[in-house]
Amino acid sequence: MIATPAAPAPGPIGPSPLWTRAFHGFNLLVLLLMAASGLEIYNANPVFGGREGVTVPELFTLGGWLAGGRDWHFAVMGLYAANLGLWIGLLLRRRHRRLAGTGDLATLRGSVHPPRRRLASHRITYTLMLILLAFSLLSGLAMYKPAQLWWLVSLFAFAEPAGFSSWQTLRVCHLATIPAIAMLLVAHVVLSLRVGGLRLLRAMVL
C-alpha cells in the first residue's frame, strides 16, 4: 500500500473496485466513438445554419459519410447505454457516498480550507459528468425514436415561446453535451491530479 502522507488527506486512496475502473475506462472509449460519429452526423445538416452551416473538420469525425457515422453511432449507443446504466446503478447501490451531495455544495460555500474545497469540486464535477452523460443518452434516444417516444421530445418544447421548435432545441441540447462534457473532462483531469495526484490516477486506471 501507499503510505498516507502526514498532511490531512481526504482519505486513503486504495485501488478502486475493478468494476469502477472497468466502467470508467470503457466509458471514455465509447464516449470518444459516440462524439466523433455524432459530429459526422452533425455535418450532414449542421445544427447551426443548416445546409449553409459550418461543418466540423473531418479530423474530429468518424464514419466517412452520414451513413458511416450513423453506423458507428447506433452500433456504440447500446454499449454506451449499458455501460453507463450499470455503472450508475452500481454507484448508487454500492458507492453512493462517493457521489456529490448537498454537503459538497455547503463545503464550497462555507469552507476556506483549499483541499476540502478541491475535493468537493472534484466530487461535484464527476457527479455532473455522470448526469450529463445520462442526459446525452436521453436526448439521443428522443432524436432516435421521436415518433414512439414523442413524450420525451415534448420535454424539449420549453423554448417554443422563444420561437425554437422542440426538435431544434433537442438537437442543440444533444450537441451541447459534447462541449459540456469536454469542459467537465478538463476540470475532472485537473481536479483529480490536484486532489489525488498520480496515486489517484493509478487507483482509478490500474
Binding site: L32, L59, L62, G64
Partner: peptide, 10 residues
C-alpha cells in the same frame, strides 16, 4: 481515435 478516425472509417 480523434486523430485516427480516418483509419476506422473503412
Amino acid at each position: 481515435l480523434l486523430l485516427g478516425g480516418c483509419a476506422l472509417n473503412r
